[in-house]
């Protein structure tokens, strides 16, 4: 094996700390970066620097923001009195890409996962309760992930919002569109039946 220069080793070490990047992939990426024009490589370095220096959490909803408030909180054309609660900024992005929602958000920055030692105090739940207490919120939509921990998180939050004169709803779930009823898992089918709605 040839002796690599110290800088290249450092780059490979850094790249291999990224999720899903093993040693081999890190080496491949490092050689790629060595080959491409200097400007292209530095543009990547600048982008990483900018995102760490300029991006922060929105002071109101904890979405990613480049100023005190995020673009969604600053957009007056959106419905102001509905808040959709999600676990992570990437969930917010998915809902935005769906184009089906024009209200506000609240990002929890995680979920309650007691087995991982993650309690409610590690999330932004108190800030959400504050927002609702300040008034002008008609509805809170729970859009945590449809799994046991996501459900538990949504239930904890809805308990916290009890008695605050706000409608609490959650995303519909059940059978996947385009799937076949007789091949649908009976547990999923049971959920769909219990969460049926008027035609």
């Amino acid at each position: 094996m040839t002796q690599l220069s110290e800088s290249v080793v450092r780059l490979i070490d850094q790249l291999s700390t990224l999720p899903g990047i093993g040693r081999k992939s890190a080496e491949r990426l490092a050689y790629h970066l060595l080959r491409i024009p200097q400007d292209d490589a530095l543009a990547l370095a600048d982008a990483i620097r900018d995102v760490k220096l300029n991006v922060r959490y929105c002071a109101r909803c904890f979405n990613l923001a480049e100023q005190e408030l995020c673009n969604i909180c600053l957009d007056p054309s959106r419905t102001q009195d509905v808040i959709c609660v999600v676990e992570q900024p990437r969930d917010l992005m998915a809902l935005e890409q769906s184009g089906g929602y024009r209200g506000m958000y609240h990002v929890l920055l995680g979920k309650i996962a007691p087995l991982e030692g993650q309690g409610p105090e590690t999330l932004t739940i108190d800030k959400l309760v504050q927002r609702v207490k300040q008034g002008n919120v008609r509805e809170v939509i729970m859009a945590t992930n449809p799994n046991v921990e996501g459900d538990g998180t949504a239930l904890y939050i809805s308990n916290m919002l009890q008695g605050l004169n706000v409608i609490i709803s959650k995303l519909a779930r059940g059978i996947t569109q385009g799937s076949i009823l007789e091949l649908t898992n009976k547990e999923i089918l049971a959920d769909a039946i219990s969460e049926r709605r008027p035609f």
Binding site: V148, E149, L155
Partner: peptide, 10 residues
């Protein structure tokens, strides 16, 4: 079998 009580009682 899915655990459902998480949506009902903590």
């Amino acid at each position: 079998r899915r655990f459902r009580a998480g949506a009902r009682n903590l």
